[in-house]
Write a protein that binds this DNA or RNA. Structure first.
Lengths: 214, 214, 214, 214
DNA sequence: AATGAATGAGAATTCATTCAT
DNA sequence: TATGAATGAATTCTCATTCAT
């Protein structure tokens, strides 16, 4: 690591490179915060610029198609981050139940932290069907990789055919998302974090049994 | 022509209220159809007028606050219609399981028929929190009435305290809505109507047991 | 005529119909006047609205694609008007020389009256090649019709094959336009109207001889 | 690497001014090429920078007023170059007809090679009348010099008064430009290079006769 | 000298809403 | 009542230009 410190200094001296990521993150943060307050279609790029105290030109420099691009690029970044976190769990957990609980918890944290983005995403797919398809593909690829990995490292998963495993993961992922979104953005189903997570955990077990039987 | 003029006057005096409701229904239909095609925030009142071949003035005559009013008034009407249909079932069904299946089926049909409206409603609540509260109130009142009625006419429900019964109904209602919306507008969870309904039916039974135990 | 006066009153009572054409003409006039003053690319739709004291929405009501549409629609109208005027001449003139002089005079008047439009047209074709093609087609159709008519009614033209006649007209039309545009918008070639018209008239005779010989 | 550093320093001290002119030429070339593709008002300095793979700062270093300056400076340079080429002819040709043909050919080549610039110039003069006046002055000075020279070295020109000669040259220059521009940028008058040049050549002879007689 | 991030005025365009007819 | 022309604030987006590095 100490060998790298010099390189780090050289890299950070590269013009604007640090500011650049800071600006992008500021745009994300401001945009999704405003969406939480005023809703997607009442949040304009000019609002974001004014609120973030940057110029409108800067937003269009990094996101040439405006709002649509902010969502699309955040989607790409957030998927990677989220899946990285999920992956860390999968390797270390051998018990399915334990793994599921972690998975649900991560999804829950993700929803809490990205509420504005999730609302934006759901608004954007209304007029941009490609966005939804992109997401479906990413989700498929991720769970395919996860299934392959789990089947290689874990005896409990080895018995289930890969295709079935992937389909099941995607189903569970969508089921949890459906309920979490409703709980967080439409109407609270339970009054504490623990309760909703426990409910989802049991619901997933139920669903897995249901899927197995049918 | 002169022969007809008297008839026309007579007819129009009768037709008047019918025409009004026809126009309103045409506005609803056109608005929600356009939303399905282009999304909520790309559907303007002017578009609706052009597409429905009526004047923009007419829309503002019946819905003085535009899009917001269309959604709000349709919400009021649709709630009444939907609850009427549910009520017809509740009176005639004594078996809980049977009742649930009907309830789910009605919710499913409602979602299918009102997809555009449901998308519109979810977009509108982002910037109009009152709309969501109105809905919560209506839902509460309806299930309170339903609970009272069921407890009076049905032995199976009499054992459950009214408050608990109402809460449970509301929970089930929201749970089903969450999953149906995701299934119909975000990503298909099952490939046939029967499968999703059967899954929901079992899911509700599971949830009722889960709620009873906790 | 007196029989028609009643009809005229009825027609003018038709909502906005008179204002509509007035507004359109006002937009044309204002737009082309501003272009003369500030050039095409420094004349914005908002400028036109402000200068004409109408709202920007009105411009986009009649010209949904903005500046491009103003030019395109004026082009269509002006071609018709111009060709109508030319046609009136062709029928009444049997002497080719006399006909040419009228033709040149009409083109000259057209250029003088539509200087702003001609500048706009030449700017617009830079990024809208269709506009130029449309014009070529219209010019071709007009001169084809004119050639047919002249060959039917006039002995002097009967000897020239139709195709040759059309090509010659188009050539002359373009040659005159080239020189008139330069004279009026780039640099004066002669100091009086009479001189430029006389020069063009002789130039056309020269060109016709040149074309006949080659 | 260290072996080369000295050479690099030596070279860069020599290359410096050459690099500067290379950059300027690259800007000219890129700008006028883009104008041919997209038109003057859709070609921005930022586009030029991106397309030429230099920074926008470099463009503003050499052309502090942006597009306007590029055109103005190219205008100055190109006038000199063009007039140099014309001058070489004038000295070597004693026959007026022969001289004219060379003159027309040079103008034609100039138009072909500088199409983008010519479009740009005509767009720029719309909002920058000084540009047009500068050009008129340059043209006047050039033809005055040329007239003086020709009258000194050539018997055929000696008979014509200087003022008349200058005016005639300017007239011919503008006439040819008018037709060439139309032919190359609006509508083809002839299908080969030879034909348009022959036509122009005869046209100029005609015009000279016409001017002499009036 | 060269870079390119950043700016913000201003252009194009949309859309909810009003109002004369 | 019904119409749809008219409005103009608000939105998206571009582009000439500046300036820190």
């Amino acid at each position: 690591m100490s060998n790298c410190s010099f390189i780090v200094i050289i890299m950070s001296s590269k013009k604007f490179s640090r500011n650049k990521q800071e600006k992008i993150d500021l745009i994300y943060k401001t945009f999704f915060t405003l969406i939480l307050k005023r809703g997607y279609h009442k949040t304009s790029t000019n609002h974001v610029a004014k609120s973030a105290k940057i110029s409108i030109g800067t937003i269009y420099k990094y996101f040439p198609k405006g709002k649509e691009d902010i969502i699309r690029k955040y989607f790409e970044e957030s998927m990677k981050h989220f899946f990285k976190r999920i992956n860390l769990i999968s390797v270390n957990n051998k018990n399915i139940r334990e793994f599921l609980n972690h998975f649900i918890l991560e999804l829950y944290k993700n929803h809490l932290e990205n509420k504005g983005y999730i609302i934006a995403f759901r608004s954007a797919i209304q007029s941009d069907k490609n966005l939804l398809n992109s997401q479906k593909k990413e989700v498929f690829i991720f769970f395919k990789n996860m299934a392959q990995e789990l089947r290689m490292t874990n005896e409990s998963f080895k018995q289930i055919p890969e295709k079935k495993l992937v389909e099941t993961f995607i189903f569970i992922y969508n089921l949890i998302n459906a309920i979490l979104y409703h709980h967080l953005s439409i109407m609270e189903l339970f009054d504490t974090d623990e309760k909703i997570i426990d409910f989802l955990s049991n619901l997933v077990i139920f669903s897995l049994n249901y899927l197995r039987e049918t």
